[in-house]
């Protein structure tokens, strides 16, 4: 062991300190936090119940309808109908709806948090220099690491799954909101300032509308990342398609894992198409010549 790195400090002590501190937070604040996130849980459950309560054919038609409105393409709409129908056919309708609910809630909350953060970041270089490394860490940290503190705080269940998903999925929308606003033509900003606009008027009448295509790209990425998180989140009780995959692993059932995986791919394709089409629509409105 001579070649090994010398033990300069006792890491056990350090780890114990971190764990103790966190345990203290869990004991002192666990209950309050749980109460605070109750509305989020309710939102998630309502969406899931709504999707399951609505007859399956109406859900399929509604999603296909949204897809058609976004892409103006009959082929895409038919594709959506086929993919969702297949998902139901292989017996995965209920887990698929649970997954959609989790993904929609997570994406919605990520946007709700991410856009204001992105705006703050775009308005101050100092804020940007603080946020960028934080976002880098958030995106490179192994996903499983997020699960530990959330499970400790809330116990296994939907809330920690949702929060871990949000933390994992929020960076793109923050980054691209910041980028989009910073990329708005400086001359246009100058003009608006020269006409006496306040910074709020500038933000809402010019910066956000002109950054919208970039922000939409961020939302698209966030949606995809939320979807990719569902398998991992299922380990701490998110349910849905991820749980099917997890069961496949535990029982060594290739078929179960494969079918659930296929359903996840279907959902990814559907939501990617819809989000991208909206992004393109916004872009076209601004930039075609």
């Amino acid at each position: 062991m001579e070649a090994g790195f010398p033990e300069l400090i006792d890491t056990r002590g350090l780890r114990l300190a971190i764990d103790d501190a966190f345990n203290w937070v869990v004991i002192e604040w666990g209950r309050q936090l749980e109460l605070a996130f109750l509305p989020v849980l309710r939102l998630l459950n309502n969406i899931e119940d709504g999707l399951l309560w609505t007859p399956w054919y109406i859900v399929i038609l509604a999603i296909a309808g949204i897809g058609y409105l976004a892409t103006r393409s009959i082929a895409t709409a038919i594709g959506i109908v086929v993919m969702l129908f297949l998902t139901g056919l292989i017996g995965l309708w209920e887990p698929a709806m649970a997954t959609i609910a989790l993904m929609l809630t997570a994406t919605f909350l990520a946007i709700l948090v991410g856009i204001p953060l992105g705006i703050l970041m775009s308005r101050s270089d100092r804020m940007q220099s603080i946020m960028l490394p934080v976002l880098d860490v958030m995106q490179t940290m192994p996903i499983f690491v997020y699960l530990i503190p959330f499970v400790m705080l809330f116990g296994p269940g939907k809330i920690p799954a949702l929060l871990a998903t949000i933390v994992f999925a929020v960076p793109p929308v923050i980054r691209l909101t910041n980028l989009g606003i910073r990329q708005v033509d400086a001359e246009v900003i100058e003009a608006v300032t020269a006409f006496g606009a306040t910074s709020t008027q500038r933000l809402f009448s010019v910066q956000i509308p002109l950054a919208l295509p970039t922000i939409m790209a961020g939302i698209n990425q966030t949606t995809m990342m939320a979807l990719s998180m569902v398998v991992i989140a299922s380990m701490i009780g998110a349910g849905g398609l991820g749980y099917q995959v997890l069961q496949g692993i535990q029982r060594l059932e290739v078929s179960r894992g494969l079918l659930a995986g296929l359903a996840i791919v279907f959902l990814a394709i559907i939501f990617d198409r819809i989000a991208q089409a909206y992004g393109r629509r916004v872009q076209q409105h601004l930039h075609n010549s």
């Binding site: 033509d185 100058e190 003009a191 006496g196 606009a197 601004l286």
Partner: peptide
């Protein structure tokens, strides 16, 4: 006061027009 001056007293035309594209 500066904003009021920019709104009422002075206006500006720009080289690359700087119109709001949206």
């Amino acid at each position: 006061q500066l904003r009021a001056m920019r709104r009422q007293k002075i206006s500006m035309v720009f080289q690359r027009f700087a119109l709001l594209p949206h």
